[in-house]
Simulated scan of single mutants.
Amino acid sequence: MFEVDEVLRVLALLRHAGCEVWIGGGWGIDALVGKATREHRDLDLMHRVEQEPLLIRTLEAAGFVEQPDALPGRPVRFVMADPSGHELDLHPLLFNPDGSAVQHADTRGGTFPYPADSFVVGVIGGVEVPCLSAAQQVYFHQGYDPGDRDRHDMARLREAFGIATHF
């Protein structure tokens, strides 16, 4: 499981190396609401594609190893894990001059858009952290059959922000 201290350690490690990342997924939602609301098996991080070589070197130096069998795999995302089982789900973003970004959605040229206002600040363990906005989180939670964690996460966003979600 990914605990608060480990999230903050990874973020500090990457920030110190000069890597710009934003938290998504369950930890991103917890950052938006300002507290951990459930257990997390991984940490989703969006990063600048041009910083990927530095990001990988930094994580490898900290003991993380790429997991080549993780699907859907590159170019959409890739996974790195450390010997303790901490798993990072890494999403490369290509930024536009206006601050918006795109991420590959598949190998056929599809993309996920990230409007410029998708990149915000939340709080984990009393520390301000970069994360994805509530609107972007809701956008990513559509078009599939939700699991219990998905329903839990969307309920937290509804409670905290009074926004509509798909489930």
Rank of each mutant, 00 (worst) to 15 (best):
D150R: 02
D153N: 05
R41K: 13
F119S: 04
P115A: 07
L13H: 13
A160Q: 08
G18I: 04
D148E: 14
V49H: 05
R108S: 15
R149S: 05
A36C: 09
A101V: 03
G26L: 06
P83E: 08
G126K: 11
H166K: 05
T165D: 02
F161K: 03
S84Y: 00
C131K: 00
E128R: 10
A135P: 08
L157P: 01
L14A: 14
H104L: 11
L90N: 06
P53N: 10
N96M: 04
V138G: 02
R9M: 10
K35D: 01
P97F: 08
A12H: 12
D145N: 09
V127Q: 15
A134T: 00
A164T: 14
V10C: 12
C131T: 07
D69I: 11
G162E: 05
A36H: 00
G143Y: 02
A134P: 09
R9H: 11
Q103K: 11
G28D: 00
G109W: 02
P53D: 10
D106S: 13
V33H: 01
G85S: 06
R38Y: 03
E159K: 13
G25F: 06
D106T: 07
L43D: 08
L71F: 10
V33F: 01
V129A: 10
S100R: 03
V127Y: 10
A70C: 10
P68I: 14
E50M: 07
T165I: 10
L59W: 00
E52R: 12
Y144W: 05
R149A: 09
D98V: 10
V7F: 12
G125A: 14
T107P: 08
V76N: 07
G126A: 12
F140T: 02
G122P: 03
R48L: 13
R74Y: 11
A36M: 05
D69N: 15
A31G: 06
L93D: 07
I23K: 03
I163Q: 03
N96H: 14
D69C: 11
E87T: 15
L71S: 11
T165S: 06
L88V: 07
L59T: 04
E50P: 01
A17C: 05
R151T: 09
A36G: 01
A17K: 04
V7G: 08
Y114C: 15
G63W: 03
S100C: 10
D82Y: 10
G143W: 06
L13P: 12
F119N: 08
D150A: 00
G110A: 13
C131A: 08
H40M: 07
S133Q: 05
H16D: 15
A31T: 04
S133H: 09
A134M: 02
S118R: 13
A116N: 06
S100F: 06
A17F: 08
G63T: 04
A12Y: 02
C131E: 00
L54S: 06
V102Y: 15
D30H: 01
V127K: 13
F167L: 06
V138E: 02
L132P: 07
S133Y: 06
F167R: 07
V10P: 14
N96A: 15
T37Q: 00
P72R: 08
R48Y: 09
Q51W: 08
R158F: 03
V10I: 15
A135L: 07
H104Y: 14
M154F: 00
L132F: 11
A62F: 12
G109C: 07
L43G: 12
A134W: 05
P53Q: 04
V7P: 13
V127A: 14
I56W: 03
A160I: 00
V65H: 14
V65S: 14
